[in-house]
Amino acid sequence: MSRRVMILLLILAAAAAGVVVPVFHEPSAFAQAPPSKAKKRAPAPPIAPPSLPPETVEADVSTRTIAVTSGYSGAEILVFGTIENSRQPSAESGFYDVVVVVEGAPEALMVRKKGRVAGLWVNTSTFNFNAVPSYYAVASTRPLEEFADATILDENGIGLDAVRMAAAADSAIRVSSEDLIAYKSAVTRLKQSASLFKRDDYGVVFTGRSLFRATIGLPATVPVGPLTARVFLFHEGKLLSRYQSRVVLEREGIERWLYAFAFERPFLNGMVAVLLALATGLLASAVFRRRIA
């Protein structure tokens, strides 16, 4: 009896190890193109199979609404994503480079340039852009120049040097190409100092073999409306995959309401200001007169 049991156990063990053939289910499970999870778990295959599934990237944005309250001085949104079929051994390996670009809707913009007139600095010339992103933030795992060449960055509108700015035709005709570059770099510089354009060279962090995240700061002045979040996956300078997601930003809170009120009911806003002023002035004189008397 014990011998019969022994044999049975042996057969079972062999079957479990996949050595013995007389099992019913899917004998070719490992030979065929497997689902991705099985591949990852395979105990270190000696040679990489000829056709690896391509890596793809997916991402999402954490916040949909920004509350503009009286203490508002900017908000943060989190862009997080994952690499399908990630081949990097660990979060720290630096196998992939990820770039996150968050961009606001394009808007018309006017640039003014000062010149010296009779000893005073005066706005002397203007230049119009038909479309400049209201907001542009780029974050990456390391400085863009270290892993991608200028052409590929420019083609995909990645980086502060590659922000799409469409000059108005009448303005573009008037100025030389050097002046155009000067105007464009002035826009970038001024928007950067207003925190409306920003780059963060180490802003994307891997938190796992395939998970990554980036925190993007939005200043108080960020225009409401649609934001586009684009995510690019690079490996050794090659663009492997990209992903795009849209977010509509809304501002809420009393300050937002006041802003809307001022623009939608401008005269009423003025009357409220006057009433407020009259009340403050009269109240103060009443209060202080009583205190003195």
Partner: peptide
């Protein structure tokens, strides 16, 4: 009178 640090400025058209 002094030379400004930034001679450009942005405005909405």
């Amino acid at each position: 009178v002094i030379t400004p640090s930034e001679i450009y400025s942005l405005a909405s058209p």
